[in-house]
């Protein structure tokens, strides 16, 4: 198991290094450069040269990438030229907001999705199963930012049940939770249907397998078989999907943070783009990529813990 964890973590590191390098190369390939983005087209050559030197942009590409990694390892992502604060500090200040939002969203949708999936698989082809099926597809169908806007319109602006703006008073847990309801509803809704369908499909597959039949033949109670044997394996694809889905969750969080004016990585990126604050944009993209890679790796490791067959696979 340890060797699997080491191998998987190694792969994650390689992917992170490649991803950051790829980002660098793309930035160099596409027209437009950070300096004109930040200073605007009318900047004087002296000003451009000064900023280029300050950001290390006058070095060759390979050296830039090398310098970037060397600095990154020391936790230094450069300095925000506007506020003179460390980019790492600015970005790290926003990460908890986004992570709280994402984890709350996926948490409630996984609980309800798994329960619905189990119910559907246990009562296959019943009215409830069909209803869950249609509801699931419909829930998957609505993009998160549309749910955000609709829930903002109905529950916050029209009915005034929930707050429309912000993340709540710092230190006031109840208020913060209250501010989380609509945003996490918006992000989680499509996942309920998705997870329910996934759990149903894999439960049905596993309930037909040999070891479940054997357990039945030994006279174990059906409830025991469903939850002790089948569910444990049926959850595996859900873990993978949530791990891989972290990318979708981070993307959805961008929209939700904008719609509800919540602090977080997404709001930071959009604000930094409007103020042409390029280092902060890059820092936020980098952090979200790190979160994404870490979560896919973690999902693979959890899967290997739950299912020993996976440890030998690539």
């Amino acid at each position: 198991m340890l060797s699997y964890i080491l191998r998987r973590t190694g792969l994650a590191l390689v992917i992170t290094v490649l991803a950051v390098s790829l980002l660098f190369v793309i930035i160099h390939m596409i027209p437009g450069d950070p300096v004109s983005t930040m200073l605007g087209p009318k900047a004087s050559p002296e000003l451009r040269a000064a900023l280029e030197e300050r950001m290390g942009l006058n070095e060759p590409l390979l050296i830039q990438i090398g310098l970037f990694f060397a600095n990154m390892l020391r936790g230094d992502l450069g300095i925000d030229v506007f506020s003179n604060r460390q980019v790492t500090d600015i970005v790290l200040g926003q990460v908890p907001y986004t992570l709280t939002l994402i984890l709350t969203s996926i948490g409630w949708s996984a609980i309800i999705g798994i329960a619905l999936g189990c119910y559907s698989a246990a009562n296959r082809n019943s009215f409830g199963d069909r209803l869950t099926g249609v509801l699931s597809v419909s829930m998957i169908a609505v993009p998160a930012f549309v749910v955000s806007l609709y829930s903002l319109l109905f529950f916050a602006v029209t009915l005034k049940w929930f707050p429309a703006i912000g993340a709540g008073e710092p230190g006031d847990f109840g208020d913060q939770l209250w501010h989380l309801v609509l945003p996490s509803l918006a992000i989680g809704l499509s996942w309920v249907g998705y997870i329910a369908r996934l759990v149903r499909a894999s439960m049905l597959e596993i309930m037909g397998e040999g070891h479940v039949r054997t357990a039945r033949a030994f006279g174990l109670p059906e409830r025991w078989i469903t939850y002790r044997y089948a569910l444990r394996l049926a959850i595996l694809p859900t873990v993978t999907v949530i791990g891989v889905g972290m990318g979708f969750l981070l993307s959805a969080a961008v929209f939700t943070e904008i719609v509800f004016s919540r602090p977080g990585l997404g709001k930071l990126v959009i604000d930094s783009i409007t103020t042409r604050n390029y280092p902060v944009v890059m820092g936020s993209v980098l952090f979200s990529t790190l979160i994404f890679v870490a979560s896919t790796t973690l999902a693979d490791i959890i899967n290997a813990l739950l299912d020993p067959r996976l440890r030998s696979a690539r």
């Binding site: 792969l11 390689v14 992917i15 992170t16 490649l18 991803a19 790829l22 980002l23 793309i26 930035i27 596409i30 027209p31 437009g32 450069d33 950070p34 983005t37 972290m246 990318g247 979708f248 981070l250 993307s251 961008v254 929209f255 990585l265 997404g266 990126v269 959009i270 930094s272 783009i273 042409r276 390029y278 944009v281 890059m282 936020s284 993209v285 979200s288 990529t289 994404f292 890679v293 896919t296």
Partner: peptide, 23 residues
């Protein structure tokens, strides 16, 4: 490895990084 690398960017974040430069 190339596939895994490209997939490691959250799409919207990646899009925003590019848009920030080219408009």
């Amino acid at each position: 490895l190339f596939f895994d690398t490209v997939r490691s960017f959250p799409t919207v974040m990646f899009a925003l990084a590019v848009v920030a430069l080219v408009g």
